[in-house]
Design a protein around this nucleic acid. Structure first.
Length: 122
RNA sequence: GGAGCCGGCCAGGCAAUCGCCGCCGCGAAAGCGGGGGAGGAAAGUCCGGGCUUCAUAGGGCAAGGUGCCAGGUAACGCCUGGGCGGCGAGAGCCGACGGAAAGUGCCACAGAGAACAGACCGCCGAUGGCCCGCAAGGGAUCAGGCAAGGGUGAAACGGUGCGGUAAGAGCGCACCGCGGGGCCGGCAACGGCAACGGCACGGUAAACCCCACCGGAAGCAAGGCCAAAUAGGGAUGGACGUAGCCGUAAGGCUACAACGCGCGGCCCGCGCGCCAUCCGGGUAGGCUGCUAAAGCGCCGCGGUGACGCGUCGCGUAGAGGAAUGGUUGCCUCGGCCCGCAAGGGCUCAGGACAGAACCCGGCUUAUAGGCCGGCUCCCACU
């Protein structure tokens, strides 16, 4: 289970996204925003992606950015507490190099995990 | 060798490893194994179909579209062949390319005049006047004639030349153009031929319009099926005064003879109140539509060709908050550096345009680098 990313580790239902957007804590970094909520039913951490067409007009770029985020999540999620995270891409994220994006994501993961750790431990 | 034209094709390669999405097999499951997993444009959504639902007796009109002819096709605004016009030295390329003799409108500015036209400059002044002269004749230009030349314009009521004339004019002639008819070739668009007619008929239809053909609407979030919980609807049956409390439940106890709601202004009255089963609608959710297709490839036959027919082989992504990727190594191409060169080195965020969403046929647009075939022109050599 080291670095897998099966289907159940994703947010799939509109309700799950809605919960993150309405109740989640917002963590802002350059180009990306994370919406974190400690996951209710699942014991694993789950990821949802929101890359709006407005922020990234071309489909190729949207796919590329989603893949980069997923890859980062996949390799690190074993250390995460049970939480639901929605990563929201904002305008300008196309200018980020893969290295920059990866750094930003690392910061977001640690911040998100810190946010959820106390509630998960209790 | 250089310059260019046309058609077709590829879309960095191999390996290791960590992942993702379907399918098949094993497994109770976790998972494991096997095999498959973006494009030539998947894009723009501009046309044409299939499929689906709704509408529709039949037919007509309208909106909208198409527009040389013939063929191909399921169909098309596509493709092929042919015709005509334009461009190019050529290979070739480009063209909304039906009708202006059905009608209506418009043709600005400039210009004298713009559609059954017109005389600014100009030319002439033969003829009739005028002046000079004896006369022959000469002169100016009043009447008048002309439209060749100048000038305007996108366009000036055929063009060029010769004759002709006072000057001119299709006035006459030759050639070219034009016209209607004839003959010949062609399925046709159209082309050719000789004679005839002195020329009549300006342009504009991406202006209205006329003619011919097409022409119902919306789209896979189409549409079909299954269907939890909660609330509500209907039917049937049962229990039964109602409310509270106790009990897992069957039921028991207490209180009131009364209550609440609906019908109604009020009373009487009537109905409902609890439980079970069934039915239909329908939400979340799930399944389906969903990929075998007007499919692709080889060969043969028919056809100038688009394409058609036949044999054989292949069977090719199906997600659904949406997979098709990350990392590393080697090679390749590119870039940069060194070198006269062969070659060597650097190891770079360098590798075009771009990501399927029901499926096909087209069109249009984007596209690094490269390969193959055919053809044209120029230069050199033999």
């Amino acid at each position: 289970m080291t670095a897998r990313f099966p289907r159940r580790a994703r947010l799939q239902k509109p309700g799950e996204f809605k919960a993150a957007f309405e109740r989640g804590s917002r963590l802002n970094e350059k180009w990306l925003t994370a919406l974190v909520v400690s996951s209710g039913d699942s014991s694993e951490s789950r990821l949802g992606l929101a890359v709006p067409k407005k922020a990234v007009p071309r489909a190729v770029d949207r796919n590329r950015i989603k893949r980069q985020i997923r890859e980062s999540f996949r390799t690190r999620r074993a250390a995460f507490p049970a939480m639901d995270v929605v990563i929201l891409a904002r305008g300008g994220c196309l200018q980020a190099t893969p290295e920059q994006l990866s750094d930003i994501l690392d910061r977001l993961w640690t911040r998100a995990a810190a946010k959820c750790a106390p509630s998960a431990s209790s």
